[in-house]
C-alpha cells in the first residue's frame, strides 16, 4: 500500500507527467464547477425563501461563505505544498504553492468585500471589528506578504523557498491569531453581534449554500490545475517538450 502511494506520489511530482495528466482533470472539474456554481447561485438568488430577520440581503451568503471557506483552505494548501517542497525538494509543489497565492488573495478579498456590503444592511455599518472580519483581514495581509515576497526575490527558486517558510510561519499562527482576535473583540464589545453566529438554517437555504461551496471548491481545483500547468511552462521553458507545448499555444 505504502509502496503504491510512494510510486503514485513520485509520478505526480514529475512536471511532465502532471502536465499531461491534469489536462482532462481540469477540463471536467472546470465544467462541473461552472454547472454547480451557476445552479447554486440561480437557486440562491431567485428561489431560496426570504430570511425572516435579514430579508433578501442574506442572499450574499451564497458567495460570502464559500469565498471565506476557500480563502482559508487555500492558505493551508499553500503551507502544505510549501512544506512538501521544503522537505522532499519537489519543484511541482512549489509551483502549486505559488499559483495558489493570487487565488487565495482574491478569495480573501471577495469574502471581505461581500462581508462589508452585507454588514451595511444588517448591522448598519460597512465595517465592524468582529472576530471573523478581523481574522479575514489578517489573512489577506498574510497573502499580501507571500505575494510581495515572491515578487521581491530575484531568483524564482529562492522566492519559492522563502515563501514556503513564511507560509509555515503563517499557518502556525492562524489559530493563535483567531484566538487573540476573539479575545480582543469580546473584551471591548458587548456581545451584540451574537446573531451572526450560525443560526440553524432552513434546508431550502442550506442546499444552495452547500452546492455553492462545492462549486467554489471545484472551481479552485480546476483553476489550480490550469495555473500550475502555465507555471510549469514558464519555469521549465528550457526543456524541449515545454518549448513544443508553447509552440502549440499559438495554434489554438
Amino acid at each position: 500500500m505504502w509502496q503504491l502511494f510512494v510510486r503514485w506520489f513520485h509520478k505526480w511530482s514529475s512536471p511532465k507527467w502532471f502536465y499531461e495528466m491534469s489536462k482532462p482533470w481540469s477540463f471536467w472539474l472546470g465544467w462541473a464547477a461552472l454547472l454547480i456554481t451557476t445552479t447554486a447561485i440561480i437557486w440562491g438568488l431567485g428561489f431560496a425563501p426570504v430570511e425572516r430577520l435579514q430579508g433578501n440581503s442574506y442572499r450574499i451568503i451564497f458567495i460570502h461563505v464559500p469565498s471565506a471557506f476557500l480563502s482559508e483552505a487555500i492558505y493551508v494548501t499553500i503551507a502544505i505544498a510549501g512544506a512538501i517542497g521544503l522537505i522532499w525538494r519537489i519543484k511541482l509543489a512549489y509551483y502549486v504553492a505559488k499559483i495558489c497565492v493570487p487565488l487565495g488573495m482574491s478569495m480573501a478579498f471577495l469574502a471581505l468585500a461581500t462581508g462589508a456590503i452585507w454588514g451595511k444592511p444588517t448591522w448598519g455599518h460597512w465595517w465592524v471589528w468582529d472576530m471573523r472580519i478581523t481574522s479575514m483581514l489578517i489573512l489577506l495581509l498574510l497573502y499580501i506578504g507571500l505575494w510581495a515576497l515572491h515578487n521581491a526575490m530575484e531568483r524564482p527558486e529562492s522566492g519559492d523557498r522563502a515563501a514556503a517558510i513564511l507560509a509555515l510561519v503563517g499557518v502556525v499562527n492562524i489559530p493563535v491569531i483567531k484566538f487573540s482576535v476573539n479575545l480582543v473583540t469580546t473584551l471591548h464589545q458587548p456581545a451584540t453581534l451574537k446573531f451572526t453566529e450560525k443560526a440553524p438554517m432552513h434546508i431550502s437555504m442550506l442546499i444552495p449554500l452547500l452546492l455553492s461551496i462545492l462549486g467554489f471548491y471545484l472551481a479552485f481545483l480546476a483553476l489550480m490545475l490550469v495555473r500550475s500547468r502555465i507555471e510549469i511552462l514558464r519555469r521549465e521553458r528550457k526543456a524541449k517538450w515545454v518549448q513544443q507545448e508553447i509552440e502549440q499555444l499559438g495554434n489554438r
Binding site: I138, G145, A152, I177
Partner: peptide
C-alpha cells in the same frame, strides 16, 4: 528572509506585521 534583498526594510514590515497581531493584542 529579506536579508538578501537590497530594499528589504519595508518588505520585512509587510511580512512580519500580520504575524505579530497576537503579540499586540495580548
Amino acid at each position: 528572509l529579506t536579508v538578501g534583498l537590497r530594499k528589504g526594510g519595508l518588505l520585512l514590515t509587510i511580512l512580519i506585521m500580520p504575524v505579530l497581531v497576537p503579540v499586540l493584542i495580548f
